[in-house]
């Protein structure tokens, strides 16, 4: 750069500083212009409006018997819904929270005790745990078992054993009526 500016250095310092200022200004404008293009360009890779519009789903629960499960898709991920039996509820409520990896009470994870709704994605590295079907391996704690790396979840979807750091996430949902929930 310096070689270019030096070639004919007849001018006084005054002009030099003003030019330096203008160069900075031009550089700033160039940076802003580039940024003004790059921000929408990168933002276009975020979820599009049609994707966002599908971010709620209503689920009819009337066909899930006590002890049964249902899996629905929400935002491209499986949602595990379990109609828990009385034993499963007691089992989940009786655990000493202080012994857990991720300390959450069962009450804080359900709207109604008989319905457990969790995102069916292992919090370790994103596999789908087994346990939705009665024939599946439910793990030692009667919930779900992730066959990828052996994480075990209880009947409240909490991590009890294995490498996963957190409980299965609870998606935002609410009961529209007694037998219908709206997720998202």
């Amino acid at each position: 750069m310096s070689a270019g500016a030096n070639i004919q250095n007849g001018q006084h310092d005054d002009g030099e500083t003003r030019r330096g200022f203008m160069q900075m200004l031009a550089g700033a404008f160039g940076a802003v212009g580039l940024g003004a293009f790059l921000v929408p360009a990168v933002n276009s890779l975020n979820p599009a409006k049609d994707t966002l519009a599908l971010s709620t789903v209503e689920v009819d629960l009337s066909d899930v018997p006590v002890g049964g499960s249902k899996t629905v898709m929400w935002q491209g991920k499986p949602i595990f819904i379990r109609h828990r039996t009385a034993e499963e509820i007691t089992e989940a409520e009786d655990v000493d929270v202080q012994t857990l990896t991720d300390k959450q009470t069962d009450e804080s994870r359900v709207e109604k005790p008989e319905w457990l709704v969790v995102v069916g994605v292992c919090t370790h590295l994103g596999c789908i745990p087994q346990g939705q079907k009665t024939t599946d391996n439910h793990g030692e704690f009667g919930g779900w078992f992730c066959s990828c790396h052996g994480s075990q979840y209880d009947t409240s979807g909490r991590i009890r054993k294995g490498p996963a750091p957190k409980n299965l996430a609870v998606p935002p949902y609410k009961f529209v009526n007694d037998t219908t929930i709206k997720i998202g």
């Binding site: 929408p40 360009a41 933002n43 276009s44 599009a48 409006k49 049609d50």
Partner: peptide, 13 residues
């Protein structure tokens, strides 16, 4: 058309 209508800033790109 999805780019034009749904993708964020898609119409501009």
């Amino acid at each position: 058309e999805r780019i034009m209508r749904d993708v964020n800033g898609g119409w501009l790109l």
